[in-house]
Amino acid sequence: MKLKPLADRVVLKMVEAEETTKGGIILTGAAKEKPEVAEVIEVGPGGVVDGKEVVMTVKAGDKVITSKYSGTQVKIDGVEYTIVRQGDILAIVE
C-alpha cells in the first residue's frame, strides 16, 4: 500500500534517535527523546489551500525538522509514518 498525500500535506518517516551519546554512553529506550528529524517520503501537489496558493518547497528524500508533536501518525505494512502540513515543517536539514 502507498500513501499519496492531498493538498499541502507531506508524508514523513521519522529517523531513529541515536542510541549512543557523543561520549559513548548507551541510551536506553526510555532515555531517548522523540525524534524530530524525519525523511520526506511523499509530497502532496500543493495548490489552493484555505484560499491561498501553496507551492510545495520540500521533495521526497529531504531530511526535515518538525514540531515535536505535530501531525497524524499512521501505520502501513508495519511501518509508522507521520502526515503533516507543509507549514508544520520547521526546517530542511542540509
Rank of each mutant, 00 (worst) to 15 (best):
S67Q: 14
G24K: 02
V58C: 01
M14N: 11
E42L: 07
M56C: 05
M14H: 04
I92G: 02
G44Q: 04
L27I: 07
Q73K: 15
K63R: 15
K34N: 08
A60H: 04
E53Y: 01
T21E: 07
M56R: 05
D50Y: 12
T28Q: 11
I26S: 10
G29I: 05
T20M: 11
V40P: 01
K59W: 08
D77S: 09
K32V: 10
D77V: 05
V55I: 14
T82F: 07
G46H: 03
V58A: 05
E16F: 00
P45T: 02
G29F: 02
E42F: 01
E33C: 11
V79E: 11
V40D: 03
T72W: 10
L90R: 10
V37S: 13
T66F: 05
M14G: 08
D62S: 04
L27S: 07
I76D: 05
E19K: 14
G44W: 05
Q86K: 02
I65F: 13
V64W: 00
V15Y: 02
I83Y: 05
L90P: 00
D62I: 07
V84W: 12
T82C: 09
M14A: 13
E33G: 14
V84P: 07
K75Y: 01
V58W: 00
L90I: 13
A60W: 01
V64S: 03
V15A: 06
T66E: 02
A17T: 12
G47N: 05
G23P: 00
I76H: 09
A31C: 07
V74M: 06
E33V: 11
V43I: 07
V43F: 09
